[in-house]
């Protein structure tokens, strides 16, 4: 298994390299630069800045320098937040985003799973219909609608929860962001679980289990659910990567100092290193979670082998 994981990590290197290369040149060929302010800087100052940030070197040179520093785990200094390095920015913001994402993910898995199983067991009954209607709602309404609407109701009208802010991650501040993040995931997990659970309950081997007088629990949990969870697992891989690396919308609306905002901010301010850093972090998360998904798959399904 260790060999498998190493192999997978190694095979991810070309992808990562490709992502870095494309992003790097895409940003650089774009018009505008990090120091194009409304008031143009003095030529001398500009020259100095360019020198400090290696912008005076040729593009291939800069590219190689960047690759080298990334290999050493250094994403370089930020162009916009002048006093910070990208690593410092991420060290502060990533844990916040991850904390939010992880909570939302857990919530989605538990609530969505339970709803999905319940709906599958009560297929075509009112319970099923209401769960599915709610799920469609959850999948359809975009988070940039949900977030302000929840704030409007619970923050402005009822005044139960703060309208925004993080304040070091107090519980009340985290409630709405977590719910908004989790809602669509709950819906998707519920739908997937219901679908695969219904299929599993109809399968021949579950019929065998019923014909042999096994208990309801054994049939549902041991024989149906284990197989039915597989599609959910493969969905959750990329979803987890996206959740843990923060959401621009939610962090903007609720004013949360996470990593999600940095990409758009960086792009708008031509903060080259910030944009690159975010892309690399997200890509790494995607790669890691894909590997985790495969491992979980193998754990659940003996037919999957690491070779």
């Amino acid at each position: 298994m260790l060999r498998y994981v190493t192999g997978r990590l190694l095979s991810a290197i070309p992808t990562l390299f490709l992502i870095i290369t494309i992003s790097f040149f895409l940003i650089r060929v774009a018009p505008g630069g990090p120091f194009d302010l409304e008031r143009p800087l003095e030529a001398k100052v500009m020259e100095n800045l360019n020198k400090i940030y290696n912008l005076d070197k040729s593009l291939p040179e800069q590219y190689l320098l960047y690759l080298k520093s990334v290999l050493h785990g250094d994403f370089g200094p930020s162009f916009f937040f002048r006093d910070f390095s990208i690593n410092e920015l991420f060290a502060k913001s990533l844990p916040i985003s991850m904390q939010l994402g992880l909570t939302a993910l857990t919530l989605a898995l538990i609530v969505g799973g339970i709803l999905g199983i319940t709906a599958a067991l009560r297929q075509n009954h009112s319970v099923d219909y209401s769960v599915m209607a709610a799920a469609t709602l959850g999948v359809t309404i975009p988070n940039f609608v949900v977030a302000p609407c929840l704030t409007l109701v619970f923050g402005v009208w009822l005044g139960w929860l703060p309208v925004g802010g993080w304040e070091g991650g107090k519980f009340v501040n985290a409630v709405l962001p977590v719910i908004t993040l989790a809602l669509p995931q709950v819906a998707v997990v519920a739908r997937l679980t219901r679908g695969s659970m219904i299929e599993a309950l109809r399968s021949n081997h579950v019929r065998t289990a019923r014909a042999y007088g096994l208990s309801g629990y054994t049939i549902i949990v041991v024989h149906a659910l284990r197989g039915a969870i597989l599609p959910v697992v493969s969905y959750l891989g990329p979803a987890a990567a996206a959740l843990l690396t923060g959401s621009v919308v939610i962090e903007t609306i609720f004013g949360i100092p996470g990593i999600g905002r940095y990409f758009v901010q960086g792009a708008l301010n031509r903060d080259y290193t910030l944009v690159m850093g975010t892309v690399v972090v997200v890509a790494c998360f995607v790669i890691i979670f894909n590997i985790i998904v495969d491992l979980v798959y193998a754990l659940l399904d003996p037919r999957v082998r690491f070779d």
Partner: peptide
């Protein structure tokens, strides 16, 4: 497959921001 593994939403944002 390769294109799938790229963070595309980022590229769209970049495209729109820069161009």
């Amino acid at each position: 497959d390769i294109l799938y593994s790229l963070p595309f939403i980022f590229f769209v944002i970049m495209l729109v921001v820069f161009f």
